[in-house]
Simulated assay, not measured.
Amino acid sequence: MLSTTCRSLSQALQRPHALSAVAQRCLRAPGARSYADQNERAEQPRTFHPALLQFLVCPLSKKPLRYDASTNELINEELGIAYPIIDGVPNMIPQAARTTRQKEKQEETKQH
């Protein structure tokens, strides 16, 4: 039964004209955007709203974050990490954060 479903889906994907408009939007590859989506995006760029800071905390330390508009990042001063904001949405995955104390660490190693 599962193989039949997979086969049907595979055949439908090979014939995108046979799918409804809703199904085509749902089956589009992640990250792929149509020309209309790109134009809409260019007209209305998403920006981070600083009022969200009252609800957001660092997922690692659970401490409040600071918004840095010049780099478009949320900064955790205590841990020395910065979370990027992409299309107005904070990426709060710790692996996506960059360290902000690299210069301090480099200076310390040079002094020792």
Rank of each mutant, 00 (worst) to 15 (best):
D87E: 14
E77D: 15
T100W: 07
D68L: 01
T99Y: 15
I75E: 07
Q95F: 11
P94M: 14
L65Q: 05
G88P: 05
P84I: 00
A69D: 06
M92L: 15
V57Q: 11
T71M: 00
D68F: 00
S70R: 07
P84M: 02
I81Y: 10
K62C: 07
Q106K: 14
E77Y: 09
M92Y: 07
N91R: 03
A82D: 01
E43A: 15
A82M: 01
T71H: 00
D68C: 02
P45C: 07
P84C: 02
P64D: 08
E73Q: 03
L52I: 01
E107N: 13
P84T: 01
Q95A: 15
L53Y: 03
L74W: 02
D68E: 04
K103L: 13
V57N: 13
H49E: 13
E104T: 10
A97L: 09
A96P: 03
A82T: 03
P90H: 03
E104C: 08
K62D: 05
L53H: 05
P45M: 07
N76S: 14
A96W: 06
L74H: 02
M92G: 03
L53N: 04
N76R: 05
M92D: 03
D68P: 00
L56F: 08
G88R: 11
S70W: 00
V89M: 06
K63I: 05
P90W: 04
K62V: 13
E104I: 09
Q102Y: 07
R46I: 02
M92R: 10
D68R: 00
S61V: 11
E78H: 12
S61R: 07
T71V: 05
R46K: 15
P64M: 06
Q95M: 13
T99A: 12
R101F: 08
P94D: 09
D68Q: 00
Q95S: 14
A97C: 08
M92N: 08
K103H: 10
D87V: 03
F55Y: 13
T47F: 09
T99K: 14
P94W: 15
T47Q: 14
N76I: 10
L53C: 04
T47L: 11
E104R: 15
E107P: 06
L53D: 05
P84Y: 03
V57I: 14
R66L: 08
L60H: 05
R66A: 08
D87P: 01
F48S: 06
T71L: 02
H49Q: 14
F55D: 13
F55V: 09
R66K: 11
A51W: 01
Q106W: 12
G80W: 13
T100G: 09
F55G: 05
F48W: 10
E104N: 12
F48E: 08
Y83D: 02
V89N: 04
V89W: 04
I85L: 04
H49W: 01
R66Y: 05
T99I: 04
P84D: 02
N76C: 15
A51G: 10
P64C: 06
T100A: 05
P64E: 09
H49I: 03
Q44N: 15
D87G: 02
T100H: 07
P64S: 07
I85W: 04
K62E: 08
S70C: 04
I93F: 12
E43W: 11
E73F: 00
Y67L: 02
S70P: 02
E73A: 02
